[in-house]
Design a protein around this nucleic acid. Structure first.
Lengths: 193, 193
DNA sequence: AATGAGAGAGACAGATCTGTCTCATTTCTT
DNA sequence: AAGAAATGAGACAGATCTGTCTCTCTCATT
């Protein structure tokens, strides 16, 4: 028997879909209230403001992304470098899904450009946490310049996310994987000589 | 003696600054009217809607970007490949400027996610025109897979623009240039063997 | 000097969005 | 079963934004 979802859960579930698919600014509170079948009072009892909901949405997304990293670590238990390569490939493949609408953190940061806006701050913090973890992996893998490599991978991955979002039809996961591996190999080669 | 700017010119000039610095959705018509010292009627005599102004802003930006490409071609008249490398380095260096706020085309596309929104369409068209030109350069340079390389450079450059925008303090033009050259070299090496 | 286009100032309408409040009803706890 | 807490429905206020309209003034052309 299915558990009945609480108002808060329904709101968050609908918000996640709508915010990601149509953008945070484009989706109003009324829309979320209507589609989640919740009363306005119930909404504001669970979230003080819309921004609070946005922060909760970003937090949910952060957890999912960290889950992806954990997944990659489990899939390639023997080599951290293999975990890195797998993570890049795995996420790039997912960008090809028709539901892919870019990186929620980047999109939200762009939608709220004021650097001290709570949504902007939360988006950046989440993004940074993820990439700090990846940098740790690069360091753990014993690569000579984990910092530089992570910077490069972050640029490449971030751009891939944008291309997959805006120029979906032209995005080729293989091109991305090739490029990512070229960057990793390039650094490994520089270290070997 | 300085020429007096017409209302339209003043509006466009102010709009370019404000839209780029603070985002299109965040800047209202009233703000632009006030800061350009123009009457509301004068605004709507020159631009039918706000979207029309946004399209004009993007068109202006497109011209500037194409100007950057022309600049790169002039700076390295002998080798198209050198033009490509120069263009990447030149634009990456400019991303380090404190006024840099990311790629206007990507930002606007994210701000208006509806794919048939006139601002979204104009942003995408402009972006595609630029990268089609770069692909032509890669082809002209005699590279084996100009398409793939351009895709990779577009991902890397787009991500660099985002990093330079959102994580400004951590952006290193040198890391970008290294990565871009690694991608170019990687393809050249693959072709040579 | 006369005329007409362009421009400034700002009130106003209409739409939209966030957030508040009331009240009846349902659901959970004990 | 009874009281307490959560929920649904929706009116309403207040802010903000786009776009319209009127009226006046300036300036260039003739």
């Amino acid at each position: 028997m299915e558990k009945k979802l609480t108002a808060k859960e329904r709101i968050l579930r609908v918000a996640e879909q709508l915010f990601y698919r149509e953008g945070v600014r484009a989706v109003g509170i009324d829309r979320i209230i209507q589609e989640s079948g919740v009363a306005k009072a119930s909404f504001y009892r669970n979230f003080a403001t819309k921004d609070d909901l946005v922060v909760a949405y970003l937090e949910l997304h952060r957890e999912r992304v960290m889950g992806n990293i954990a997944h990659a670590r489990q899939q390639r238990p023997d080599s951290v470098l293999a975990q890195l390569r797998y993570l890049m490939e795995y996420t790039a493949d997912r960008m090809k899904l028709p539901t892919y609408r870019g990186c929620a953190f980047m999109n939200t940061a762009v939608e709220f450009p004021e650097t001290d806006h709570p949504d902007h701050v939360k988006a950046l913090d989440s993004r940074n946490e993820v990439w700090n973890h990846i940098e740790d992996m690069a360091r753990e893998a014993g690569l000579p310049k984990p910092r530089e490599l992570t910077e490069q991978l972050r640029m490449l991955w971030s751009g891939a996310a944008m291309v997959a979002y805006i120029n979906k039809e032209e995005f080729k996961p293989q091109s991305f994987s090739d490029a990512a591996n070229a960057l990793i190999d390039s650094q490994a080669a520089a270290a070997a000589k």
